[in-house]
Design a protein around this nucleic acid. Structure first.
Lengths: 247, 247
DNA sequence: TAAGCATATTATCTTAAATCAATTCGAACA
DNA sequence: TGTTCGAATTGATTTAAGATAATATGCTTA
């Protein structure tokens, strides 16, 4: 398995083979989680940094009313919470959405690697800045976009993120999120998500089936979303490459 | 003027007088901005780190439709964008909401100070983690809270943040945000914000007047908001101290 | 292969918040 | 000391999305 973490960081900084080897060393002995299993819960003492190697997870919070809000999706290659040990307790939970393989890296190991490998540190800090930009984009979506724009925008984001780590093939995207999960992320009801997905399908923009998204018309989807990929801060622009026929 | 930046970081880590002096050194020569003036605009090349010394600012984005979404409020003591130079361009703007005094710290200066003052580095990383937690709390609010809960939640957050840097006195809070600005932050219309504020006033929870908030019943306000202060990761709990008569 | 259960789908009805439209208020200033 | 202009307030109407409910579909697994 080509390490998706190394693959992702390579999109943010130049990593040598030596850097990559150092990363792989601290990520040996990954743990397996079942779908719906918590990696860590709200209120738990903060622990190691997690790196998702396979499968998807999310950050989430359950409100007193019982409703859930998902605040971030974590896909292979994503790391969470560099420096988290500085805080005492988790203010939210992290849960596997599919069966997942996750490395747990101690603060000390990570610190040592970043000290000895300058470009890893740069890549990690860049990744954190991009994660913050993604959160801001979610705030913009929830505040000022209609439901169809919001769904389209999230799909554009996830497609481009998935592309970096090889989850896409032409307009096909391996995305294992149920409509219920999407609803919890977008602050909508599953019923309404379903209606919006039908509209996007009839529009010929995209269609979602169990475990997979087909982007039929990337430009239409991006237009509906008002999508501007700048916030993902990739080295090269990719919207054009969302087109199935582009190579 | 007691430096609000030092005051804030002291809430996150133990700083010696020497640490404080080092911070003050790199923040000499602050700039003045008028209300509505941009510190930096979306699309601009990334610049120095900003530290708000006086006044309020916000991170914002203008959508193609012309609507604005505010993604964060910056008050005295808040720093933005440690490491920002790793990214090429700003994906959002930062604008003064009131006349403001802002220090601009170069990446190199900040790096040097963090190298030589371990506790400053720890405080800065903690501050960044708290900023991320605040963004996540905003996502939760926008996704799953009603308009009255959202307004109440934001007020609780700002009150506690303002408290750290001395903007509050008993139940009185110097908060210079107009209803239009609040609307842009909460993803609502100014008209609806106004209706919600009336409801909160009639409820006896809080009332907002030009430049100032009076928290009449902190516990009621926190109850309406479903407010749980854990995400602000303060050393001590403060909700009780929101009560005017508490010392 | 049938049962069970989560997920998806569709229709109907309700509601929270947006939109539209006037005023009113109040600080800045000419 | 009246004028001006942005901000605040209130009412009437519309609408996007929620709530409810009734199937349908399709994996799992017994």
């Amino acid at each position: 398995m080509l390490d998706p973490f190394v693959q992702k960081l390579r999109g943010l900084a130049e990593l040598t083979a030596i850097d990559a080897a150092a990363l792989e060393r601290i990520m040996s002995h990954p743990h397996r989680y079942a779908a719906r299993q918590d990696l860590i819960r709200e209120g738990d003492e903060t622990g190691p940094m997690f790196v998702i190697l396979d499968g998807w997870a999310c950050r989430y919070k359950i409100l007193p009313s019982g409703t859930r809000q998902i605040m971030a999706f974590l896909m292979p290659g994503d790391a969470c919470d560099l420096h988290i040990k500085l805080l005492a307790k988790m203010d939210h939970g992290i849960q596997a959405l599919t069966p997942a393989v996750v490395a747990r890296v101690s603060q000390d190991d990570m610190h040592a690697v970043m000290q000895n490998h300058r470009s890893i540190a740069l890549a990690m800090y860049s990744a954190q800045l991009v994660d913050e930009a993604i959160m801001r984009a979610w705030i913009v979506s929830m505040g000022r976009r209609s439901s169809i724009e919001r769904v389209a925008h999230l799909m554009c984001e996830l497609y481009l993120r998935g592309r970096t780590i090889g989850l896409t093939q032409d307009g096909e995207f391996a995305m294992p999120l149920s409509q219920i999960v999407l609803a919890d992320a977008l602050g909508m009801t599953p019923v309404h998500i379903n209606r919006v997905l039908r509209e996007l399908r009839l529009d010929g923009a995209m269609s979602l089936t169990r475990g997979s998204v087909t982007i039929s018309d990337p430009h239409k989807l991006a237009r509906i979303a008002g999508f501007d990929e700048n916030y993902l801060h990739r080295r090269t622009r990719h919207i054009a490459e969302m087109t199935p026929q582009a190579r």
